[in-house]
Design a binder for these strands. Sequence first.
DNA 1: TTCATTTTTTAACATTTGTAAAAAAATGGT
DNA 2: ACCATTTTTTTACAAATGTTAAAAAATGAA
Lengths: 188, 188
Amino acid sequence: MDELIKKINSIYPLKPDSLKLLLDEMHKIELPKNKALVDAGQIGRSAYFIKKGIARAYCDGKDNQITFWFGQEGDFVFSYNSYINRQPGYESIELLENSVLYEIKDEALQRLFIENIDLANWGRKLAELELIKLEERYISRLFKSASECYAELLKSSPNLIQRIQLGYIASYLGVTQVTLSRIRAEIK
Amino acid sequence: MDELIKKINSIYPLKPDSLKLLLDEMHKIELPKNKALVDAGQIGRSAYFIKKGIARAYCDGKDNQITFWFGQEGDFVFSYNSYINRQPGYESIELLENSVLYEIKDEALQRLFIENIDLANWGRKLAELELIKLEERYISRLFKSASECYAELLKSSPNLIQRIQLGYIASYLGVTQVTLSRIRAEIK
DNA sequence: TTCATTTTTTAACATTTGTAAAAAAATGGT
DNA sequence: ACCATTTTTTTACAAATGTTAAAAAATGAA
């Protein structure tokens, strides 16, 4: 629970009372590898904090799946689309390892935002931080070749490359698995 | 001012009192084409609402500029990076036409968020909506070829293509101007 | 271990996109 | 209208990535 509190306060420092309100709604759960946290077409009913494990978010195409996000220890997980729009979305999220999570129901979170200004600002800051993380990723992809993106990922998250199969990583980088294999062969 | 109020309430409906607090901090200004709203390396001191005009956000590379965002009538403009981190950023924003904007100082906005829960939730919703817009754009680029992205832009924002020079649009789509010219030649 | 299955790599060829340079078209000021 | 400047298109060639299929390596269950 310690790392959860640390993470929460790193986003936006909460008063002890506000923190307690939030923590009281979060419950630890263990879920197995391949479990779907969010199914496209269904409304996402919970957000999660990853204590242990890895998750990926993806969309289904005509004949392929596109992975566009990975989460690991210390990350929050939610289907932004259904979380924000309260509508069935296009994204699915699944666990890639047996995982330990803290879950909070979406209804509880929304209620806390409306009732407590401290938590409303925490939720604001959370969205803002996710926004710039995504923006940086977006810009990075506009600037860089697939090879540079891979080298960057290798440097920033070597553990992801150890733990996640290459097909997903290739898709995440926006190239085919064949291309990623070629890139890896060149780097060695 | 009417369209501004409409836009504000479409993000998150505000109580009249809260709306007034926000509007009291927003002031209409006219700025000429090419004016820099945000300079990379400087802290963004204001956010803007575009009443009339077009803006683009870009980063400087070694020997090129990458445009990654366009804003037009009805859009909010701010350098997320410096707005959120309160640090000099990597992004610059400039006007592509003579424009009419509503400006709000960042200090004022931050103060309103801390003082008023209605506005804190408005700010949260604003960031969340921007987040899913960017996520959709990000996923779209992973799925689609440059040609499909252009066709999509042509459909969703034909006015942007009329009003913005192709070099910027090519960069926004992640291709060179030569490639975009080729795409346009094929479509006809 | 062994075997079936999944994942990763390699190869050959097709397609797309990039680069550099020049031509054509559009723009803006006088 | 005219000219200089900027923007867009075109061309030829190079480099990167996609596609398909097969081989090699890794994984997991019996």
